[in-house]
Design a binder for these strands. Sequence first.
RNA 1: GGCCCCUUCGUCUAGCCUGGCCUAGGACGUAGCCCUCUCAAGGCUAAAACACGGGUUCGAAUCCCGUAGGGGCUACCA
Length: 465
Amino acid sequence: MTVRTRFAPSPTGSLHIGGARTAIFNWLFAHHAGGSFVLRIEDTDQTRSTQESIDEILDAMEWLGLNWDEGPLRQSERLPIYREHAEKLLESGSAYKCYVTPEELQEKRKEAQERGGVFRYNRKWAEENAGPDKPYAIRLLTPDEGTIEVDDALRGRVSFDASEVDDFVILKMDGFPTYNFAVVIDDATMNITHIIRGDDHLINTPRQKLIYDALSYDVPQMAHVSMILGSDQKRLSKRHGATSVTEYRAEGYLPEAVVNYLTRLGWSYGNQEIFTMDELVEKFTLKNVGKSAAVFNPEKLEWLNSWYLRNKPPEEIAGLLVPLLKEKGIHAEVDEKLAKIVKELSQRAKTLNDIADSLNYFYSDEIIYDEKADEKFLTHEILPVLQDITRRLTSLEDFTMDSMKEEFEKVMEERELKLGKIAQPVRVALTGGTVSPGIFEVMDILGRDKVLERLEEASSHISAK
RNA sequence: GGCCCCUUCGUCUAGCCUGGCCUAGGACGUAGCCCUCUCAAGGCUAAAACACGGGUUCGAAUCCCGUAGGGGCUACCA
């Protein structure tokens, strides 16, 4: 039997970090086994599902590299299938029509709570409101006693008391299936073999098991992965910061970093931290997935992102950067210059945005001196040194890093100055600030004309002080 | 409240199944030092954990039982 996994988000928002990890696990598991990965949209909640959410989720999946082999299937387009199965259960006596309205149930639930008791649906109410044209929901007839056992790949056998499960609705009055019903029908008819999903669904499995049994379908292998928590150990939510894949993309994270981080959150492979997608596919097994909840740690994601930035070919990063720069009004293209810039700046950045934010001086015609830097380094004391350097560079035949270095060394020797003394003022003159790649690299990228122009500008700026 | 799940450094985790190799390993973060033209990167070092209490055993992070804490669910939401 070939492995088939699925990811089944409900389109009520963007792709959440937790959902993304579930998707990644399912994707990896399927690919590891040479099986297929199915995408299904659970849009049976008519009031909360939106097309925008669907688009955003699909977009985020593609960005992460999680391609699907089938789908996206939509539950809202499969209504007849659910109805058909519900009818079948009605015929076999495993389910029955219930005429109690949601409002009445709400009422009874409230009463029970006020009395301090536990609300439990009573089968006898089912027929009470019956009438020829009355709308009805369909409920599953569930056992009153015994235990319902579920085998989980991560947690072993989990058993529930049948008395905890009352006759629940499988088909709503509006003709839509409830979550538990739709999930089972879909997973069964799509021949899903392994269900990897969040811990929050563990409690649903006894209900689902009952449906599988009533329909004589095999129960897939379940694996309930723990949730991702925020720094306060509470379920990760907006107040913990960015929680959607889309936000991380906008902040300049690389998909490989996000995938790597999310996979390592709850899964491990010895002491290894960095994995390529191929390695992940090769090494991912459920056996190495942990059982306890994991706190989302933005610093570690940031570190991983910076690692990928440092190790990815500069040309590729340059390609990702161009659109970002365009938004900032910098019209760069993927050329030798940008590749050189990226090579230097990616060593010092945490995100793509960091790079985009710190290369202005390579493209602008005018540089603005940082006030403090100006005050500290562009001094009358250094003026002769700057002029000396300008003179030497002007007469330099080939403007290479080596030859520039030679000239700097001569100045250092003659004036008995350390490189630091000279490099900082030059850096301020060329970039406007005190932080940049190595000074020779900067000069090399800027090119002869700009370097000389800016050095002269700095000199006259000092003289005018 | 009831039911279910979980519990190793601040965080992600290795080790747990198949007790001794654990003086509990790695990574992020933090601190210090080195390197150094700034900032990074890199190198070295440090502080930092078996939730608690009972068993079982020659021996327990590892097995058993309790307790505590955390999380989840408790819908005609998914």
